[in-house]
Amino acid sequence: MTLWDGVLPFYPQPRHAAGLSVPLLIVILVFLVLAASFLLILPGIRGHSRWFWLVRVLLSLFIGAEIVAAHFSAEWSVGSVSTKTSYKAFSVERVRAHVGLHVGLEGVNITLTGTPVQQLNETIDYNEQFIWRVGQNYAGAYAEALEKGLPYPVLYLAEKFTPSSPCGVYYQYRLAGHYASATLWVAFCFWLLSNMLLSMPVPHYGGLALLITGAFALFSVFAFASISSMEMGRPGSEALTAPFTHPQPRPDCAVAGVLCLLLGAAVLSLHYARPSALRLFLEGSVKDLESPTKGSSPLILSNPLHKQFRASDLTISTNL
Results as ranks from 00 to 15, higher is better:
236 G>Y: 04
141 A>V: 02
296 S>N: 04
147 E>C: 03
127 N>E: 12
145 A>H: 00
126 Y>V: 03
198 L>V: 00
67 I>D: 13
162 T>W: 04
268 L>I: 14
77 S>Q: 03
231 E>I: 01
22 V>Q: 11
241 T>F: 12
288 D>V: 09
202 V>R: 14
269 S>L: 08
59 L>T: 11
131 I>C: 01
238 E>F: 12
63 I>L: 09
131 I>T: 06
262 L>Y: 11
206 G>Q: 07
175 L>C: 06
111 T>F: 02
246 H>S: 12
319 N>F: 09
23 P>I: 02
74 A>L: 06
118 Q>V: 12
44 G>V: 07
319 N>A: 12
273 A>T: 07
297 S>M: 06
301 L>F: 15
243 P>V: 06
180 A>S: 15
225 A>V: 03
190 F>Y: 14
316 I>S: 09
313 D>R: 14
197 L>T: 06
223 A>Q: 02
198 L>K: 06
75 E>R: 10
28 I>E: 11
206 G>E: 03
83 T>R: 10
106 E>C: 00
61 L>A: 05
161 F>I: 08
312 S>A: 11
260 C>T: 09
272 Y>V: 15
22 V>D: 12
268 L>N: 06
146 L>D: 00
90 F>Q: 14
99 V>H: 00
237 S>T: 14
66 E>L: 02
210 L>N: 07
13 Q>A: 12
181 S>K: 14
232 M>Q: 11
306 H>Q: 13
277 A>S: 08
241 T>Y: 10
111 T>R: 13
292 P>T: 04
161 F>V: 02
56 R>E: 08
215 A>R: 02
65 A>M: 11
70 A>P: 05
213 T>C: 06
284 G>Y: 12
91 S>F: 03
44 G>T: 10
248 Q>D: 15
49 S>I: 11
320 L>R: 08
255 V>K: 05
45 I>E: 05
29 L>I: 04
57 V>T: 04
55 V>T: 09
266 A>S: 15
217 A>K: 06
299 L>G: 01
312 S>Q: 14
239 A>V: 11
206 G>V: 08
23 P>S: 10
199 S>G: 13
257 G>E: 01
138 Y>Q: 00
186 V>H: 12
61 L>C: 05
292 P>R: 14
259 L>V: 15
224 F>M: 08
3 L>A: 09
177 G>T: 01
62 F>Q: 01
210 L>P: 00
271 H>T: 06
229 S>T: 12
99 V>N: 02
107 G>C: 05
178 H>F: 10
37 S>P: 00
